[in-house]
Amino acid sequence: MKKELLKKIIETKSKITVLADESTSVGHKSTLIVYLKASVDGEMEPIAFPLDLVELDSMSAAQIKEQIMGCLLKNGFTVELLREILIGFCSDGASVMLGVKSGVWKLLQDDFPGIILWHCLNHRLELAVDQALDVTGGTKDFQAFMGSLYSLYSQSPKNMQQLSECAHNLDIALRRIGKVFSVRWVASSWRAVCSLAVLSSLGTTFP
């Protein structure tokens, strides 16, 4: 499917935007997730789809830029074609990615002067929510409380078994809430709070 999408994009010379984000694999290796956003036939609404997942030898802007270019070239694009169709670059707000002096965006802009920078909306939303929580009293304590509950039972099969036995003896429905991640994403906090709200309204016990 990816090959067909890329073939259409290259044939029609549709404008593309590169979306890139750093991550860490299970083996604790630095990786780069590369997405493309484009109108496949030049007429339909643009769609975003995963292009590749590449390992990074270092976290320098030059290495990341090299891996992004290598990923694009490996998937059928040429430098000449990219100068014609590459119009945007989107990532998080890390200085290594969006630094105006030596970030990945600046290095890409040197090769593609018309490229437009875009700070990922999801990352900006996460930063805005985090700043709002910092100035709102009690939210950090509430988050720490939920995190403690999660850790107490999710990391101990013995505690989980005892809780399940208590719930069974009391004929109480046992529900599980998710972990509130401190970095990503707002959705994880929203799901956990909603689960807690539902459980509290039902008077049920939860781990």
Rank of each mutant, 00 (worst) to 15 (best):
G27W: 11
H28S: 11
V34G: 00
L170A: 12
S148H: 09
Q162C: 13
L149P: 00
Y150Q: 05
V129A: 08
D92N: 09
E80Q: 12
L127K: 02
I64Y: 00
K158P: 02
A173R: 14
S195A: 12
R175Q: 12
Q161T: 14
S188F: 04
A94I: 06
L202C: 15
E84R: 10
T136P: 05
Q161G: 13
I177N: 07
L107Y: 02
I87S: 10
I177H: 04
T139L: 15
T31V: 11
V100Q: 11
L196M: 07
K15D: 08
V79R: 10
A62S: 14
F89K: 00
D111S: 10
L127A: 03
M59K: 13
D111V: 04
G203R: 04
R83Y: 06
Y35D: 10
G114Y: 03
L127E: 00
T204H: 15
W105I: 01
V34F: 01
I115D: 04
T31R: 10
E22M: 11
Y153C: 08
T17Y: 01
F49W: 08
P50F: 05
T204V: 14
L53E: 11
E66A: 12
T12C: 14
V100S: 13
C194E: 13
C120L: 07
E80F: 05
K65C: 09
I177C: 13
